[in-house]
Write a protein that binds this DNA or RNA. Structure first.
Length: 650
RNA sequence: GCCGACGUAGCUCAGUGGUAGAGUGCUUCCUUGGUAAGGAAGAGGUCGUGGGUUCAAUCCCCAUCGUUGGCUCCA
């Protein structure tokens, strides 16, 4: 029986009575005209609806304005429709794929046919969008049958939409219309285009239809919109600021690393300062791992081809890898190692193992080489030669969960040490519909997947689960951190592997005096030194913690007359294992300070006549200014204690 | 690998169908200065590379290499 009267519960738990069929816009109007002017969408029983959509049942209602995430998503989705309307106006006959909102903004995939599309055309599309927005065209929703939907887009000749309709269920198909533009869309949308006051189209990119490399590549146009011009300006400024944190820029400025065409793309050169930083990171982790029962090992950069045939990697990746290294011996071939695990398996096999020996934890800062697709290379985050902070834990099946938990704790320890609070822990499982992509028995996969999930639960780790993202040999838990521009990168990783022990016939003798197969856990808390340093740079904008920074201080003589004293100070500090330089240039002190500030040196030690006479230094802290004069020993103890404090915190 | 953009002095970038400019850095000189840029002079570029169009190409076209925004991939 149909209700005549409905009860609406608002977020403050108050309730109001309306006639059935009242829309959330009507309700907003009844509350206040100001609210009605600003409401973009509504959450009806937790689902985001158009404000014009009539409500026929009792419901909880939250009116969404620009400050709500869901309103912004709706706003940007509606903006994608507006862009599509502009595109149809400017380029008659374009075909449209999908046009969703994304985290910041929206995109639409467009097929321009034979036409080449260029960046320079974005501006006139923006103009057209703003012009159309001024029409205050209402986004109106219409339920259509599958047949009607087919008819409309057949007539229009848009095969992409037809394919989408194919996958939809009759009775659940809706069209949205604004102005002259009609789109297949389940909504919701903002009330009308007039809310869209500022538009910026940011970039164009090729994107395969339905993410399939074998299908047509469409032109994807990315953009963002705002209800106020001021907000767009602020957003663009934020983007500019983020670009200043880019590790590629800071890495060059601070002389941490470089690339050379002559060396080869994706092969980073670690310069002295970058190396100093990296080696500190390595010793930090090495020390921690020793505490946690790991043994450090070293293996060569190449391995016999047979090693990778045994491991299965040759079959899987051989054709897409750096190719084999030939020797003067006919038929002999080595491969650059793309991972460390096969070497570590061979280490395991150097002697018979007892169940009492397990777990065996072999750790190595192992440099590996992978022929990544050229289009994938990106600064230090995606390279072709990199060093993993790798380790393989060989354990009994009953130890897997415990070891897994310990690894999770190690990763969290590392992330905490560097202040990475905003990360995602992702459990990657098999694609249940495509099991042939993976090796290993169903049973082992199920055990491994369960153990990962249990370990995550028991450590209290908040995780997201992705199907189909597992490695081909086992499920994994990845820790992802965002870079300055919001791109996600996988740093820490933990992976269970039942496959390699099988392929390498690894065994241990159990308490029952029978042979058993160990389980392997691959893990890397940093992921790789390269990617970790990249993300760390962006995280701290090049202002590294004192214990890590390549140069902790710069000694700045007032004039050349005090260079000798500056050297004396340097000797004293270096004797205490503190790191820094003397700026002996023929420049004024103001200049030397500025340069040291710009190059992010934490401490500046000004030395002149007074300091030389009293064997002191005038200390200045980056970003804080003058801290006053102190004796060299006092500065040493201040710097050392700050370093120690950082290290006990981490 | 695919689509788009870019490649000019060590760095950041301007510019033009008639063989190139700024700022900064670098070198030298003057200055020896007390907490975010002292002054002057000078050196530096086959305009990524290879073809083509043209009387003439750094500029237009093609190819190639590299970088870059995405897509796909990622042991």
């Amino acid at each position: 029986m149909e209700q005549k009267i409905i009860k609406i519960t608002l977020p403050d738990a108050s309730t109001r009575i309306f006639e059935a069929g009242t829309s959330s816009m009507d309700i907003a109007t009844s509350i206040s005209a100001g609210l009605a002017r600003n409401v973009l969408a509504a959450e009806v029983n937790g689902e985001v609806w158009d404000t014009a959509r009539p409500i026929y049942t009792d419901a909880t209602l939250k009116l969404l304005t620009w400050n709500d995430q869901n309103a912004q998503t709706t706003f940007w989705h509606s903006s994608a429709h507006l862009m599509a309307e502009a595109l149809e106006a400017l380029y008659p006959g374009v075909k449209l794929g999908i046009g969703p909102a994304i985290e910041k903004g929206f995109y639409y995939d467009v097929d321009f046919g034979d036409r080449d599309f260029s960046l320079t055309e974005l501006e006139q599309i923006e103009k057209k969008m703003l012009e159309l927005a001024k029409n205050n065209s209402v986004y109106s929703r219409k339920e259509v049958s599958k047949t009607e939907a087919f008819e409309y887009f057949s007539q229009k000749g848009d095969e992409y939409k037809l394919e989408l309709i194919e996958g939809l269920q009759d009775g659940q198909i809706t069209f949205y219309t604004q102005g002259s533009f009609v789109d297949l869309c389940k909504g919701p949308h903002i009330p009308h285009t007039g809310f869209i006051k500022a538009v910026k189209l940011l970039s164009v990119a090729g994107a395969y239809w339905r993410g399939d490399i074998k299908r047509k590549q469409m032109t994807r146009i990315y953009g963002i919109t705002f209800p106020q011009a001021k907000e767009l300006k602020e957003y663009l400024e934020l983007l500019e600021e983020a670009k200043k944190r880019d590790h590629r820029k800071i890495g060059k400025e601070l002389e941490l690393f470089a690339f050379s065409e002559n060396v080869g793309m994706g092969l980073p050169l670690w310069l002295p300062k970058g190396t100093a930083l990296r080696e500190r990171l390595e010793s930090f982790l090495r020390k921690e791992q020793i505490k946690r029962g790991y043994s450090q090992v070293v293996s060569p950069h190449i391995g016999h081809k047979n090693l990778y045939i045994t491991s299965g990697h040759y079959e899987k990746y051989g054709a897409d890898s750096f190719q084999g290294i030939k020797t003067p011996n006919e038929g002999e071939e080595f491969m650059l190692k793309p991972m460390n695990c096969p070497h570590h398996c061979e280490m395991y096999k150097t002697k018979p193992r007892s169940y009492r020996d397990l777990p065996l934890r072999l750790a190595e800062f192992g440099t590996v080489y992978r022929y990544e697709q050229s289009g994938e290379l990106h600064g230090l985050t995606r390279v072709r030669g990199f060093t993993q902070d790798d380790a393989h834990i060989f354990c009994r099946p009953d130890q897997v969960k415990f070891e897994f938990i310990n690894v999770i704790n190690l990763v969290l320890f590392v992330f905490n040490a560097f202040g990475f609070k905003d990360f995602t822990a992702q459990i990657s499982l098999r694609d249940p519909d495509n099991k042939t992509k993976y090796v290993g028995s169903d049973e082992n996969w199920e055990i491994a997947e369960r153990q990962i999930q249990e370990a995550a639960t028991e450590t209290g780790l908040k995780t997201v689960t992705e199907l189909g993202e597992a490695a081909f040999y086992g499920p994994k838990l990845d820790f992802m951190v965002k870079d300055a521009l919001g791109r996600k990168w996988q740093l820490g990783t933990v992976q269970v592997d039942y496959n390699l022990p099988e392929r390498f016939s690894l065994e241990y003798v159990g308490a029952d005096n029978q042979k058993h197969r160990p389980v392997m856990i691959h893990r890397a808390p940093f992921g790789s030194m390269e990617r970790f340093v990249a993300v760390l740079i962006e995280h701290c904008a090049g202002n590294f913690p004192l214990w890590l920074t390549p140069e902790q201080f710069a000694i700045l003589p007032i004039s050349e007359k005090y260079n000798d004293y500056a050297q004396e100070v340097l000797q004293a500090l270096q004797a205490q294992e503190l790191r820094g330089v003397v700026d002996e240039r023929n420049e004024k002190i103001g200049r030397k300070i500025r340069d040291a500030e710009v190059s992010k040196v934490p401490f500046m030690l000004v030395v002149g006549e007074q300091e030389a006479a009293s064997k002191t230094v005038a200390v200045r802290r980056k970003g804080q200014g003058d801290l006053g004069t102190m004796e060299i020993a006092a500065f040493i103890s201040r710097l050392s204690s700050e370093v120690n404090q950082e290290l006990t915190l981490v």
